[in-house]
Amino acid sequence: MLDGPVRRVLEPPLGRLAAVIDRPWVTPDRITAAGLVLGLGSAGAAASQEWAAALVLWLLSRLADGLDGPLARRRQARTGAPDAGAGGFFDITADFTVYGTTVLGVAVGTAGVGDGPWWPFLLVLLAYYLNGAAFLAFSSIAERSGRRLDDGRSLSFLGGLAEGTETVVVHALWLLFPDLAWPIAAVWAMVVLLSAGQRMVAGYRSLR
């Protein structure tokens, strides 16, 4: 829901930062890989109840995720080479890996904090699975049928109640308030499930 306005606010500073780091040895794929490693580190730190470290690693991971696209577009504009799609594929698979493992890391870390239940985190993972299935299937079919939604990203993203911005905020809240992680997860799971239903309906109507 917030991705559009947040992207408009962050696009100029991220573009300037991409220009600063635009060096031959810094590639978009390497930034994506760094974000993946940082995200996995955040999950591991959360599982070990190192909440401050997990939060810092999570935010750095999401910063890297925000930088690989602007750098890739900058390089493409300079060289004129067509986008083969490999970077976009790597980016989305890295994102899914980070999202899933950080949920698991928080669930493990909070298991000994107030003996909270696991089911909210399992429900979040189910909701992520359904959302991923909806927008990835839509992107593939929309591309094939010539109905691609082009907002500058590699895939056709269907907007929804829960998007990347909300995900970054909620995952940060878990790490800031581990005692409240499971009720936050329960509410978040409901929001993401509603978003999955919204994407399924919107995608079906768009492709009819």
Rank of each mutant, 00 (worst) to 15 (best):
193 L>H: 07
193 L>G: 11
181 A>T: 12
74 R>S: 05
128 Y>I: 14
146 G>H: 04
22 D>G: 05
57 L>D: 09
179 D>L: 15
202 A>M: 04
121 F>G: 03
22 D>Q: 03
89 F>P: 05
154 S>Q: 06
105 G>A: 04
186 A>V: 12
86 A>L: 15
152 G>T: 10
127 A>M: 04
83 D>M: 06
123 L>F: 13
178 P>F: 12
71 L>D: 06
142 A>H: 00
177 F>S: 03
117 P>T: 07
145 S>F: 00
206 S>V: 04
138 F>G: 02
15 G>R: 02
144 R>P: 00
158 L>Y: 03
12 P>Y: 09
7 R>H: 12
118 W>A: 14
115 D>I: 01
1 M>P: 06
187 V>G: 08
155 L>D: 11
107 A>E: 08
158 L>C: 09
170 V>E: 00
169 V>Q: 02
149 L>K: 07
53 A>K: 05
42 S>N: 09
207 L>G: 11
55 L>Y: 01
125 L>Y: 02
159 G>E: 14
134 A>N: 13
27 T>I: 03
172 A>K: 00
48 S>L: 14
9 V>W: 13
178 P>H: 07
42 S>Y: 07
37 V>G: 12
52 A>Q: 05
126 L>S: 07
4 G>R: 15
45 A>V: 02
41 G>V: 06
148 R>M: 08
24 P>A: 02
134 A>E: 11
28 P>W: 06
205 R>N: 10
186 A>K: 11
182 W>N: 03
6 V>W: 13
31 I>C: 10
81 A>Y: 01
184 I>T: 04
145 S>W: 01
53 A>W: 14
45 A>H: 06
93 T>M: 14
134 A>V: 04
185 A>Y: 10
112 G>Q: 12
38 L>H: 07
49 Q>T: 08
116 G>R: 09
8 R>V: 00
190 M>P: 00
15 G>L: 09
126 L>N: 01
33 A>C: 13
8 R>I: 00
128 Y>F: 15
174 W>F: 15
206 S>A: 15
186 A>Q: 05
33 A>V: 14
15 G>I: 04
197 G>C: 10
175 L>F: 02
13 P>Q: 07
70 P>D: 05
110 T>F: 10
15 G>F: 08
82 P>K: 02
39 G>V: 09
21 I>Q: 08
102 T>A: 02
58 W>T: 04
105 G>Y: 03
13 P>T: 05
